[in-house]
Design a binder for these strands. Structure first.
Lengths: 361, 361
DNA sequence: CTGAAAGCGCTTACAG
DNA sequence: CTGAAAGCGCTTACAG
């Protein structure tokens, strides 16, 4: 039987509207009619071809081609009680830090036949919806949360939900909760940073922190203090400069550094954006990096390499974080009661040495 | 009637599993039973409260609270033949240029009760799916495409689809097609850039272009050539330097500029990333911007302001682009045959003057 | 290996 | 203003 593309359109038009040339999407029914089998058989052929006979498979395949059949996902989702999609929750969509993580999540999800839904904490809040509704109303089967700063009552609702096992935190997490999570080696990264500066001869090292209350801020700050003390270095209170991961905070931190009587010769910033803002502001005040002060960041965002000077940083593999998060979450969605599910993954970081840090003169 | 949160759980448990303390999401049926009305009435009360009586409204509201009812979107989507979601297609998820646009799209969509699905061209391709399937299989009601570089056969499939009206291009577009689109004033922005450099006294102006084949690259390049000629300036062929919007291409372009005998005193780059790469590479070769050459970009990404030197650029309002795209698309989804639908929006740009450009010495 | 039938949870003419 | 009933397009025990 020879079938041109015209047959498809002719077929559809005839089936649904007699002579009118209006097309309508074919359904399983249409395929079944053409293949002369039941809809059950078509469904099986499509989702589990091994259980049907070779000849049935051929006829169904042919009928699918003739009718141009595409499965209706809304129908399948209703019947299987699965949305086949995952919600990724960001604190802020406009923050480029997350784009590579999204790429990793999306890659793994689409490979597994899941779609990726995106929302930001602020927007969900503003729309008056509850986060847990995404799970409760069958819009998403699970959730990857990239925001450790959720409101405590939102967190409580999520924890008490029967869906709690389908929620996974990535990058950030919330202490005292039992959600699954993926994160990087924040402590090890921080230690590597401090030791890198120490090895360059620096003995007065400052730290520009993330925002107060942020779990990464505290983890990195605590690790910083610990390591500096372990190395027997002096740490004056004003060498812990409060920031918030942003470029603007980096600028302010630079002003704080400039104002110090006894200036540290090296600064470890809790993010690359902080480090870039810090360096930018210094250069406006005629200070030069690394000549006057060594500065490094955390994350190794794409731009770090192109920055002037190229930025020394602690590299997080954001693609891997995303892929791991998706993989772990889908495993939980598929087998929520499997006792062997991985519950927390801690991914390696690496020190990337560039020109923004140098040996103490 | 006093109702504590415990009633909710008790209710659910009793209804579905007798004495067992297992919760199950309530359905319209459950609400109807509690409110002692039909499911039709519950449905109406929820979606169109004006048509039911005051007392019914109260009883249903009460029953919703008691049962903890959440609508099942898969069921509603199947019944209404609407996915209540929109697919946003990016060329590349890891590109931070798009994050603010996504923020704008998402804001408007969530306000209108739609979810945002995200995919990248490369991934859809890799997964063996067809783009049009997202529309055909009821996963999405429409599509915002941020990639003007789709394969011609993909474009043809989309154009010939009955769903073509539910596809909208943003930022980029494809010449010769009739898809709706949102874009910025690329020509005006380019003209403003050239005139800015001209007004600073520059007479030898180079242009680093985007990638060959890209519609923005050609639009901006053509506008550049036109304006330069209109101003009566010399334009040597080697002053049109081929790039591709990336940092790396900016570095290469800088090397090309350095190698010229007769170096232009100003360079208009087709993107901020190009300009940043250009400046970074120059500084590695001991050239200083704007002293040795004025450099400017296009887009005004967040980092432009923090760059060293702060970058002069043509500002696109990416939030507005996103919001406009979402608004136009949803209008089309809701009334596909309305003859008065806006078909193309061209949004204003503005010149942002910073320190990377200066008067010719 | 295959089919008849039930049902996922909604919405919406239709009738009253 | 309200209800009974049909049906959106699938999947999946169950029976053969």
């Amino acid at each position: 039987m020879f079938l041109s593309i015209n047959n498809v359109i002719d077929y559809k038009a005839r089936t649904e509207f007699g002579d009118q040339t209006v097309t309508k999407t074919s359904t399983l029914q249409d395929v079944a009619r053409v293949a002369k089998v039941s809809t059950a058989t078509v469904s099986r052929t499509l989702s589990n071809p091994d259980v049907v006979s070779e000849s049935t498979r051929r006829r169904v395949a042919e009928a699918v081609k003739v009718t141009g059949y595409r499965i209706n996902r809304a129908a399948r989702n209703l019947r299987t009680r699965r949305a086949h999609s995952v919600l990724v929750l960001l604190p802020d969509l406009a923050n480029p830090f997350f784009s590579t993580i999204l790429e990793g999540i999306s890659r793994n999800l689409s490979q597994q036949g899941y779609s990726m839904l995106i929302a930001s904490t602020a927007q969900v809040h503003a729309s008056g919806e509850r986060l847990v509704d995404y799970l409760d109303d069958a819009r998403a089967d699970g959730m990857i949360v990239l925001d450790g700063g959720l409101d405590p009552d939102v967190v409580e609702t999520l924890e008490n939900s029967p869906q709690a096992k389908r929620i996974l935190f990535a990058c950030e997490w919330i202490d005292g909760t039992s959600f699954a999570s993926v994160r990087c080696q924040n402590r090890q990264g921080t230690r590597a940073a401090v030791n890198h500066l120490f090895d360059l001869g620096h003995r007065k090292i400052a730290h520009v922190t993330g925002p107060v209350g942020n779990v990464l801020m505290h983890t990195r700050k605590d690790a910083f203090v610990e390591e500096v003390q372990k190395l027997g270095l002096t740490l004056r209170p004003e060498w812990l400069i409060a920031g918030d991961f942003s470029l603007a905070a980096g600028c302010l931190a630079a002003q704080a550094w400039i104002a110090l009587d006894d200036r540290p010769t090296a600064v470890f910033c809790a993010s690359d954006q902080l480090a870039m803002g810090f360096i930018a502001e210094l250069s406006r005040h005629e200070f030069s990096v690394p000549k006057d002060v060594s500065v490094m960041g955390f994350d190794d965002i794409d731009l770090a390499e192109q920055f002037i000077p190229p930025l020394t940083s602690v590299r997080q593999d954001r693609l891997l974080i995303g892929e791991t998060a998706a993989k772990m979450l889908i495993a939980r969605i598929k087998a929520p009661d499997d006792g062997h599910l991985e519950h927390a993954a801690v991914l390696p970081v690496s020190l990337v040495t560039r020109e923004s840090t140098a040996a103490l003169q």
